[in-house]
């Protein structure tokens, strides 16, 4: 009380000093402060803080779960991509195999066809050869006949009765050969 009354006008109950140093109010303030703090502590430690801690932990858990899920999904996608790539590669190699097979088949068919055609051509050529030979033979024969007739005619014209057909024929044949 000494401090409060120090700056106060004498006799004035509400001194213009510092109410902070009015010790008569101390027990009151301290009592209510203790009450307040106890109530606050009970509210905080029983309700508010555990609740906030739970919420924070749950959020952390949720975030972790989501991250894990995302990781898993990413792995699944990766697997799918790998499978796709593998399937693609398989299909490619299979396709090239099929192409090679088809190529071989076609080549075989082609070879066969070419061989057949070659044989046919050869047969035809032989036939033609024969025909040409025959034509050539008959032509040669015709030439000989024409030559004999012409010779006989010439001989008859030059010297009638001078030769017989037999000797003319022999002479012409000898000439044609020579």
């Amino acid at each position: 009380m000494a401090d409060t009354s120090h700056g106060a006008a004498p006799g004035a109950e509400s001194a213009p000093g510092m109410p902070q140093l009015d010790f008569s109010t101390f027990p009151n303030q301290i009592f209510w402060l203790v009450v307040t703090l106890v109530i606050l502590y009970l509210i905080l430690s029983r309700v508010a803080l555990p609740r906030i801690a739970t919420v924070l932990a749950e959020r952390q858990g949720a975030i972790q779960r989501d991250l894990d899920k995302a990781e898993e999904l990413k792995r699944t996608a990766q697997d799918a991509e790998d499978a796709y790539n593998k399937a693609l590669a398989d299909a490619r190699s299979q396709a090239s195999e099929i192409v090679a097979e088809a190529k071989a088949d076609i080549q075989k068919d082609l070879d066969k066809a070419i061989a057949k055609a070659d044989a046919e051509i050869a047969a035809k050529a032989a036939e033609s050869e024969k025909a040409i030979q025959a034509i050539r033979d008959s032509a040669a024969k015709s030439v000989a006949e024409v030559a004999q007739t012409a010779t006989a005619d010439i001989v008859n014209a030059v010297m009638p009765n001078a030769a017989d057909a037999k000797s003319i024929k022999a002479a012409v044949t000898a000439r044609l050969k020579g």
């Binding site: 109010t25 009151n28 009592f31 402060l33 307040t36």
Partner: peptide, 16 residues
């Protein structure tokens, strides 16, 4: 008194 309901009490209550 130590138990009186004062303005300090009131505002501590508001704080709660």
């Amino acid at each position: 008194e130590w138990y009186s309901f004062t303005n300090a009490t009131l505002w501590m209550g508001f704080a709660i």
